[in-house]
């Protein structure tokens, strides 16, 4: 009996956006009298931080501080249509809609500022920190907050914008499968290291180390969070999770967390990653998508590492200790 170590790799692509497109998202933005901007959406935050990254994209486009953005979302009476939060689409689709809405709102803002500063719209620029300046004349500047207030009380205007984004729906040729399924693709390569206990069949994942290329990272800390959480979920799928442990048998169906197994904090390996940024052509500020793909490459990397360690192929998920022991037995008794 021994503890065998092995290393495995896997490299994957992952598409952004609802497959075949046709999935619109919309956004509305308006300025308040104090110069904050309300972004109205109906997109839902699942915990990945959508409200935060959308706020960052709005702030960037409007040229104001992040703290000036209020995200008002997930109410169908106030938020314009959104297809939903799935398919790694939200940051890409909603982000593009918000850029469009913010661009329109900014134009309205510039028109009021131009009047106030007695300058042409084209001669104005922002400093990205809440100020508008006349190009080349640093002394002639005004706070966006002041313009927002003046727009309402001095000029009687709205500072508002509408935005929508949709990749037109692609049809599939039913014979050849010719189609345009996605907007862009992110990529990842994972190296997993495991130790297999041949006495118990237990696989210990020692490390999951990955490189990701995700276009632009809007919020690197949140990207790291997706990668770490996804690595855990991938390991969990590879080694633990099933609602039908003996598919196609229907017994042993779990009812609670004592019967549905997932790794806990004691089982967690070392998780590391490096993130490359090669902006996409159609994502907001070059975004691709990171939400779903992070569980994908760890699964085959772990399976390949187990083979490297044991010399036995396990092609059925999850790779439970029972399967490991049966596989090792078969290898010992069968012709090699």
């Amino acid at each position: 009996m021994a503890r065998l170590r092995g290393t495995g790799i896997a490299a994957v692509n992952y598409p952004t956006g609802m497959n075949l497109g046709g999935d619109p998202s919309q956004a509305l933005i308006h300025a308040t009298t104090s110069g904050s901007f309300v972004v109205s959406l109906s997109a839902t935050d699942l915990g990945q931080g959508l409200k935060t990254v959308i706020g960052q994209i709005a702030a960037e486009t409007l040229g104001v501080e992040f703290g000036e953005i209020v995200i008002d979302t997930a109410d169908t009476d106030t938020g314009p249509h959104d297809m939903g939060t799935f398919a790694s689409r939200a940051t890409h689709r909603v982000g593009n809609a918000v850029i469009a809405a913010a661009t329109e709102a900014r134009q309205a803002l510039l028109e009021v500022a131009a009047e106030e500063l007695e300058a042409a719209v084209d001669d104005l620029e922002g400093d990205g920190h809440g100020n508008l300046l006349v190009k080349g004349v640093p002394t002639r500047s005004v706070r966006i907050a002041e313009i927002a207030s003046m727009a309402q009380f001095k000029y009687g205007r709205t500072i508002a914008g509408r935005g929508a984004y949709m990749k037109p729906k692609s049809l599939v040729d039913p014979e050849t499968g010719a189609m345009d399924p996605d907007s862009t693709e992110a990529h990842a390569c994972t190296v997993a290291e495991v130790e297999v206990d041949t006495e118990t069949g237990v696989v210990t994942v020692l490390s999951i180390r990955s490189a990701y290329e995700v276009g632009r990272q809007v919020n690197p800390a949140l990207v790291q969070g997706q990668i770490a959480g996804g690595a855990w979920m991938g390991m969990s799928h590879a080694l633990y999770e099933t609602t039908a442990p003996y598919y196609p048998a229907v017994d042993h169906s779990p009812r609670d967390f004592s019967e549905y197994l997932m790794p806990g904090p004691l089982e967690m390996p070392e998780i590391e990653c490096v993130v490359l940024e090669m902006p996409s052509s159609n994502g907001p500020y070059g975004v691709k998508g990171i939400g779903e793909m992070t569980a994908n490459s760890p699964i085959p990397a772990i399976a390949n590492a187990i083979y490297h360690a044991t010399g036995v192929r396990f092609d059925d998920l999850p790779i439970t200790p029972e399967k490991i022991l049966r596989g090792l037995d078969a290898k010992r008794s069968g012709p090699s």
């Binding site: 790799i9 490299a11 692509n13 050849t176 499968g177 010719a178 189609m179 345009d180 399924p181 862009t184 693709e185 992110a186 990529h187 990842a188 390569c189 994972t190 190296v191 180390r209 990955s210 490189a211 990701y212 290329e213 276009g215 590391e272 990653c273 490096v274 490359l276 090669m278 996409s280 052509s281 691709k288």
Partner: peptide, 25 residues
Amino acid sequence: KPHRKLVEDATLIETMQAAATRVGH
């Protein structure tokens, strides 16, 4: 690609290079 769309935004090679560097391969 098999579905006849031309590949764009490919970065598989670059991520594999970065992963190899990361693990010292």
